[in-house]
Design a protein around this nucleic acid. Structure first.
Lengths: 371, 371
DNA sequence: CTGAAAGCGCTTACAG
DNA sequence: CTGAAAGCGCTTACAG
């Protein structure tokens, strides 16, 4: 029954309505077109194509015929009509606080989209700046609500805490941000556990004096990472010294321009350093280089983020903690689609980080061992 | 007329239909709800809210009343219904060949979304891998077509040439890719002009022997950049030598592991180097460093891409050519929305690159001048 | 197994 | 200036 390609002749429409129908150009075939061409009712065509109660609702030959016609006419169901009828668009809104703008956290988006596709959902992606006014945010949310998305994911580039505005629909989940009102579910990385990972990597390599280059910009991740880091040091019975801790802007210049501990007597300086993020670590590399020092011979370094094009490309490649951004993105979609609201104590999901071992961690300098 | 917040009482629905309507929870108000509460017909409510022929179609007092009620009920028009009726979803599909996955070209997406918002359009974002089979691509396109997007943007991470599959709707535009069938419009960066920019920067700094580290991976941008580069050298009356040209994989290792020209006699080596991209330039930095050489004192370097977190963060910061990704993304949306199909010779839009001057270009080493 | 009918929530001629 | 009616393209009781 292959009567040639695209839009070949079939029985003319019985439909008397629009005279515009020349069918010359590529008007999309409707379900009615299919039904007419197959000689069945629209009801039957619908059922046949959707396989509702397959085999019993519609006879197999009819089903086949409808499907063949649909194929021949290149029928594509109109999900707009379907959505209106079923009161369900297969659609999720993804609002981002710059994640689409900054390469940094884009894997959240990619993973969210992939997970959405797995559930036959499409993603509307909307970028509002970090500095968006409430009015701008509201406009973004409204656009999504008007399109009747089944839920909204509000994603942030950096782990943040947010006082959720009240114009957000019930079915909103925060991604890489925690809603402090507790009204919405939140998915965040487990920064504290990540900090533990970093410290552990250094401790296990034999370091006993470990410094920390902290963030001075007030990221909510900072105290968490620091806590995990310090807990491990304490549990390992290692000392701490205020002179081993520094803080700076969380970027390359922060890492490069911060004076480290090389003014300390050689037997009192840290032999390992944990940096709040990879960019600071990159800056620390640059500073060491200017000092004629080497990683990891003179100083072992652990970063945070496993940032693409940085961590793996540094010389030597950086050992770092990887944020579970992809998993977080996927989880966000699952949460949005998940019917039952989480119990209160499950409102915040913390996804664990992983350690990526590369070449920036080595044993402590031998000369210092005996110091 | 502020009768309290959300869903406060108004005249009960005359609508006898669904008994499900408890209105207890947050059911979205419909236009009919608004009309009932305002004591007008649905027609009038629609016209009042949409400002059709403002002032003449509906009296000002009526208009105001309807709007007040709409506000009180937190009415949000249902664009699904509107789309079905008007046969126009305000929606564009953005299919990406990994752009959402790789931080690299994400600004195309961000700019496209911003431009779309400017036209009251929402973007469906879909990521298909570079290695997606035709069947997978088709599924992505179908999903978009079923949602009746008004057009599709097919974005590629790297400048490519594509033989457009025939299942793409007419209104598709390629972004960062050229459709070789000529059936669709394409927006690409002007790599040749970018190559000219790079060469010019070096020539103007006084370099007379300029090397090129080319891409060996077959990127379509490579011959274009090389041509622009070489044209400028020729026009400047500078010589060329095969021994000044190398090619390697377009990443950090490619730049780092390629032997440059330091085996040549000092008065015959290039004093400037143009790298196919920033990552190769980053690799070249690393190699020079191992050789104990400095940028730009020993070698001036120009990259390509102005890649975030790399170009500006290198030590010294890299002079490079910036791809007009944001402008390209915005143009793509304009093209999709643009009713009149371009004339054949306008099928491909080439957007110019810009030079970003930083610190990796200096004068040629003095010692070599006299060579 | 099949079809006629209602209705999702809008917009837009059309008639008053 | 206002409203009743049709219809966008589907799905889904409901009745045969």
């Amino acid at each position: 029954m292959s009567r040639g390609p695209l839009l070949s002749g079939y029985e003319p429409h019985r439909r008397p309505r629009s005279p515009r129908r020349g069918r010359a150009t590529s008007t999309q075939a409707t379900l009615r077109d299919v039904a007419d061409a197959a000689g069945v009712s629209v009801t039957t065509a619908s059922v046949a194509l959707n396989d509702v109660r397959a085999g019993v609702r519609v006879s197999e030959p009819t089903r086949r015929r409808v499907r063949e016609v649909a194929k021949r006419l290149e029928y594509r169901p109109n999900s707009v009509a379907r959505s209106l009828r079923t009161q369900s668009t297969q659609t999720i809104g993804f609002i981002s606080d710059e994640v689409t703008t900054t390469p940094f956290a884009v894997s959240m988006l990619a993973a969210a989209q992939a997970e959405a596709a797995r559930h036959d959902q499409l993603l509307f992606v909307l970028n509002v700046g970090v500095d968006a006014t409430p009015a701008m945010q509201r406009r973004a949310v409204d656009a999504l609500v008007e399109h009747r998305v089944s839920g909204i994911i509000y994603a942030c580039m950096h782990h943040r805490e947010i006082d959720a505005p009240d114009f957000l629909p019930q079915r909103t989940v925060f991604l890489n941000a925690r809603d402090v009102t507790g009204r919405h579910r939140s998915i965040v990385p487990d920064d504290e556990q990540g900090g533990r990972l970093a410290a552990t990597a250094l401790v296990e390599a034999g370091h006993e004096r470990i410094g920390y280059l902290d963030d001075s910009a007030g990221n909510v991740a900072a105290p968490l990472r620091r806590k995990g880091f310090q807990d491990v040091l304490r549990e390992s019975g290692l000392g701490r010294s205020a002179s081993w801790e520094r803080s700076a802007t969380p970027d390359v210049s922060g890492g490069r321009d911060t004076e480290l501990f090389f003014d300390l007597p050689i037997d009192q300086r840290p032999t390992g350093l944990f940096c709040f993020n990879d960019r600071m670590a990159m800056g620390a590399y640059q500073r060491l280089r200017r000092l004629g020092l080497h990683v990891p011979d003179d100083l072992s370094i652990v970063g945070f983020d496993d940032q693409e094009f940085i961590a793996a490309e540094l010389d030597p490649p950086l050992t770092t903690v990887r944020l579970p951004l992809a998993e977080m993105g996927a989880r966000a979609v699952q949460q949005v689609l998940d019917a039952d609201p989480a119990t209160p104590d499950e409102q915040t999901v913390r996804v664990p980080c992983t350690l990526v071992r590369r070449a920036s961690v080595g044993a402590p300098p031998a000369v210092l061992e005996q110091g």
